[in-house]
Design a protein around this nucleic acid. Sequence first.
DNA 1: CCCCTGACTTAGAACCATTAGT
DNA 2: ACTAATGGTTCTAAGTCAGGGG
Length: 778
Amino acid sequence: MPSLHGDEIDGPIAFKRSSASMKKNMPTPTRSSGTVVKPNSLGQHCQKSNLKRLRVEDVLMSDDSDDDKPIAVRMKVCERKSKEIIRKGAMPDGDSEDERPIASRKNVRERKLTTINAGGAKADGDRDQNSDDEKPLAARLAISSAAPKTGGNVSDDDSEDDKPLTARFNLVTGGASRNSVERRGGRSDQTVSALNKDRWPSDASDSSSVESEPKDEPEHDGRKKWSTLVHNGVVFPPPYKPHGVKMLYHGRPVDLTPEQEEVATMFAVMKDTEYASKETFITNFFTDWRKILGKTHIITEFELCDFTPIYEWHFREKEKKSHMTSEEKKALQEEKSKQVEKFMWAFVDGVKEKVGNFRVEPPGLFRGRGEHPKMGRLKRRIRPSDITINIGEEAPVPVCPTPGESWKEVKHDKTVTWLASWNDPINEKDIKYVFLAASSSLKGQSDKEKYEKARKLKDYIGSIRANYTKDFSSNDQRKKQIAVATYLIDKLALRAGNEKDEDEADTVGCCTLKVENVTCLPPNKLQFDFLGKDSIRYYNTVEVELAVYEAIKEFCAGKKKGGNVFDKLDTTKLNAHLKNLMPGLTAKVFRTYNASITLDTFLNKETTDGTVDEKAKVYQRANKEVAIICNHQRAVPKSHDSQMNKLNEKINELTAQRDQLNVELEKANKLVSKRAKKRKLVGSDGDAKRRRKLTPEMLQKKLSQVETRIVETDNHKNNKEDLKTVALGTSKINYLDPRITVAWCKTHEVPIDRDKIFTKTILEKFAWAMDVDPDFRF
DNA sequence: CCCCTGACTTAGAACCATTAGT
DNA sequence: ACTAATGGTTCTAAGTCAGGGG
C-alpha cells in the first residue's frame, strides 16, 4: 500500500486542536487543572540496582506465551531487587511504517507545535532523595495493600483476617493458592493475602500452567470468573434528615413534608450549576416534584418558587463544615471509614480484593451530559429490595440492613464479576453494578488482555490497511462503507458509534455519523464536527486518501440532514467484519492500539539524555499527543484566566528585575574597569557602596538566575495554556499500555512517581505491569 | 438476521485532601 | 497559620460489545 501512508513517516507530530474546538456539554467548570511540575515528594521507584529483574514467577509458571499465563507477582517489587537476570521480551519488529498510528503522523488540524520546553529545567536532576524516599514507592504500596490491617473481616472474625477464606474454601482453590505461596519461600503471614494475588482465578486457559487447577473442576469453560466469592454487600446512603428550612412560594413560606423537602433541596443546592438554568432540567425536575407534592398542593408554578432559603441554609452548612478543625474532621472521617470498612473488601477465590463502588447511588436529580432529554428527573432512592446480590453459595449472605425487608434476589453466578446490581431508576432497563476496584486481579487480568489484543493488532494492521484500501473502490456499497469506516477508525481513532435511543443525548460515533457532521473540502480534506461520547465536540480537519474523500462525498450525496453517512453499516456489521481480519478484533481495539503505539513511538524517539525533569516533560508531551488523538477534553478550569494573569504579572516583574540587573551589571563593569585604571578612585555615595559589594560576577549570577526563572515561568504558562482543555488522565488510565511507561521509566531511570507519571492509585491498578522487562516495546 | 439486554470499559465532572503561596 | 490552588480520588453517566431469543 505504497501511497496510503507514504507521507506519514515523520512520526507523531504534536499539534493542537483549534480553539474553535470547545465543549458543548454542560459546562460546570471544574477546578482541576493541568499538569504542573511539582517537586517530587515520593521516592524513587526504580533504583539503578533493580532496574532489571527476573520475573521469577515467569519461571515458575513457565509459560511464555504471555497471553493466558497467570499474571506476575503483584505488589512486591521490593522483594525482587536482588534478581538481576533480564528476561528478554519479544521484540516487535520496530519501525515499519505500518505500526505507527496514522493520526499521529499526519495531521491537518490547525496545528501548533507544543511549547513545552524540554530545556529550561533546573539542574536539579537528582535531588530529592531524603531518607524517607529511599524506599521504593512500590514497596510502600506493598505494605499498605498487602496487609490491610483492619477489617476485611468478611467472616466477622478479625483473627482470621489474612487467611480466613483460603482456609475455609481451600477445597476449591485455596490449595493452589497456598502452594504458590509456599513454593516461593517463607513469608510472613502478613503478606500472604497479597501474595495469593499471584494466582489469577482459575480459567480454562490456565491448565498449562505449572500449578494447574484441580482437574475435577467442572466449569473450565473459560467463562467462569471465580470459584469462591465472599463480600458484605453494599452501603446505603443515610436516610434523609429534614432541615425544616422553608422555601417561598409567591413570597410566602411553604410547609413541605420531608419527602417533598428532600427533592426541593436537591434542586436548591444546584443553584450554582449550569443545570439550574436549563429548561429541560427544570421541566423534568418540576414534573417529578409535583408528583410528590400531589395534585392539590399549592405549588403549581415553577416561576413562583423561591428556593433561596434552602440554598442559603445549605451554604451555611457547608461553611460550618469547612470551619471545623482538622482534628474534628479527622475524627469524623475515621468514624465514617470504620463504618464502611467491611464493605470495602471482598474475597475472590480466597484473595482479599478491594471493592470499587460499594456505595449505592444516593437519590438525586439526574445529571445527564449534553442535551440529555432526561436531565433533572428525580433519581429515586434505592432500597435493599431493589438490589440483587451476587455471591458464592458457600458465603454468608449479607444481612439486609432494613428489618423486615429483603434483597430482591441473591444469586451465585460465577460467570460474572459483579457483587451487586440494581436497575437504574432513570432508565429501568439499564443495570447498575457493584464491581471490584481497578486494582483487583480480575480487572487487572482483563486489562492485560486488552493490551495484548491491541499489541496483536500490530501484526495485522498492515494487511488490514491493505484490505480496506482495496475496498475503497469496491462496487459492493456495503464493503465500501466498511472500508471507509475502518479507515476513519484507524486513522482518527473514532469510536465505533452504536445506535442510540430517542431518550438519550444525541451523540454519534463513526457508524452513526450524520451527513451534516462531515464537510468535504476540496481537493481531499474532510472536516468533522460532531458531538461524541459525553457530548464532547470532535472538531477536526484531516487530509484523507482521495478515494476516501470521493467515497464520503458519494455516501453523503442526496441525503437529507440527519441522514447516516454509513447507511449500510452498523457496529455489529463492522465488528463482524473486523473479526474476520483478526480474531477478537473490534473497533475499540484501534483506539487502544493507536494510543499505545503513539506513546511507545514518541517516547523512543523523543527521549534524550537530559535531566529527569526533562524526561518527565517528554512523557507529558507524549501523553498530551495521545489525549489529543483520542479527543480527551476537559472544561477549562474555573480559575484559569486569573492564573494566567498572575503568571503574566510574575513574568513582567521578573523582566523588570532582569532589566534592572542589566543596568547594574553594566555600571559595575564600568566601575571595575575604572578601578583598574585608577585604583584610588572610590565612590562615596551609598549606591556605590552597595554596588561595591556586588561584584560583576555576582550580578551576572543573579541575572542568569532571574533569566532562568523567566524562561521557567514562561514555559509553565504556555504549558498551562496548552493543556487547559486537554485531559491527560483518561488515556493514562484506559489506553496506554502501562508496560510502555514502566519499561521507559526503568530504561531512563525516571522514578515512576516522578511528577506523578503514575500516581499511587494507578500504580495499584497496574501492579500487573510493574515487573516488565525494560526492553519491552508495545 | 435483527433486537434487546446484560456486563463491562471508558469518560468528564464533582468532590475533597494535600500542597503551595503568602 | 491561613487561604487558594492543585490534582488525586470518587462518582456515575455513557459508551462498547457479546450473546440470547425471536
